[in-house]
Design a protein around this nucleic acid. Structure first.
Length: 114
DNA sequence: AAGCTGACTATGG
DNA sequence: GCCATAGCCAGCT
């Protein structure tokens, strides 16, 4: 191949994030691991920051940190856009934190078999 | 080219 | 369980 995958670590992140089902959430670390770089959790955040560059819509609001905290909500438009998007999908949030995080947690490595 | 930054995570006290 | 520190990878200045 060619192209591909190395086209960007970012695209890999986008591909994974786009596959996160509604009402479910994932963590930066899990996504980074699914991309082949377990330590690149920070890069995942950076990638999502540039997600607008991607052709398709990337549900970045479904990506949280390891404790289910909406750490990236400040990078969204509006004040609580991220929270509203998640609640709109049925995710209960209190104090910028997902209540049943472990229950709705979606691990790409586990679900996608990576 | 070298250093800093960051939507993180793991470990130690 | 909370606070502080270190490691981490890729992009940006």
């Amino acid at each position: 191949m060619k192209t591909s995958e190395h086209d960007g670590f970012f695209l890999r992140v986008y591909e994974v994030v786009k596959q996160i089902p509604p009402g479910r959430v994932s963590s930066y670390g899990a996504i980074a691991r699914s991309c082949g770089s377990p330590g690149a959790a920070r890069m995942v955040g950076w990638a999502l920051n540039q997600c607008q560059s991607h052709s398709e819509y990337v549900p970045a609001h479904r990506v949280l940190n390891r404790v289910g905290l909406l750490t990236g909500k400040r990078h969204f438009q509006g004040r609580d856009l991220m929270r509203e998007l998640l609640e709109n999908e049925g995710v209960q949030i209190i104090e910028n934190q997902v209540v049943n995080f472990q229950e709705i947690f979606w691990d790409p490595v586990k679900e996608l078999g990576l």
